[in-house]
Design a protein around this nucleic acid. Structure first.
Lengths: 129, 129
DNA sequence: CTGCATCCCTTAGGATACTG
DNA sequence: CAGTATCCTAAGGGATGCAG
């Protein structure tokens, strides 16, 4: 990780800078599927169908769109193999691999509080019904 | 942090569990503003207008909605003081305070890669134009 | 297998103005 | 100060079917 570039936090703007950094990150990672896709690819390259199966619940259209956006932002690379039928492999870049610590803590949080989250889901359903 | 409850990662389902945990977390944190709001409140309670100013760009209607959702999911508490005019204070719960490590890494990532992210913004504009 | 095309509905979220 | 009300557009996202 090298010289550890830190966020300056000395003035009253520290809070503001922090928020901006979060907003910036979210600009690229926003949406229901971006982080799950990256999480899935953390363990290595995957093909389109593998991804669709691993993500459970995403439709091909949406997955396709997510992958295009991620590729555009250089968070994943796309590689086509001229087999019959064609296979396409998606892989993380160094850029997105650096999201590892984010995903690790997010994953842990989601796991530790899954009961609480499930309660939220129920509440929403009750609220809607 | 106590006995460090870890995510089991031994079988082929490890990857699946990881993805589910990320999806679960995102279920509650989804959207453009949830995490920025929590980030803003990390340094202590804030009033509605303080929040709106700190977040830069959020409208009262959207902020109000985000706060209601966060309160419903027990990520923030809302406290009304019967002053004239009335003041309302929002504060994190222990539950959302445990997102600190998530926000720390996300913030750092956003800060370190801000140039890359800005490039994405430009690309999107060019793509749209 | 890997998508794209089309249709359609829901939700997110911004602008503006107004109220207790 | 702390929101609501109203209006509106863009984006999200599911279903189904087709194509290289």
């Amino acid at each position: 990780m090298l010289p550890e570039e830190e966020i300056p936090k000395h003035s009253a703007e520290a809070c503001q800078n922090s928020i901006s950094a979060v907003k910036d990150a979210l600009y690229v990672l926003n949406g229901k599927w971006k982080l799950p896709v990256i999480a899935a690819l953390m363990d290595g390259a995957m093909r389109f169908n593998e991804l669709q199966h691993a993500l459970e619940g995403i439709t091909p259209k949406v997955l396709s769109k997510e992958l295009r956006e991620l590729e555009l932002n250089e968070l994943v690379t796309r590689q086509v193999f001229a087999t019959v039928p064609v296979t396409v492999s998606y892989e993380l870049t160094d850029y997105s691999k650096s999201l590892n610590s984010v995903l690790t803590s997010l994953r842990l949080w989601g796991y530790q509080h899954r009961e609480h989250i499930i309660a939220s889901r129920r509440m929403k359903i009750k609220h809607a019904g």
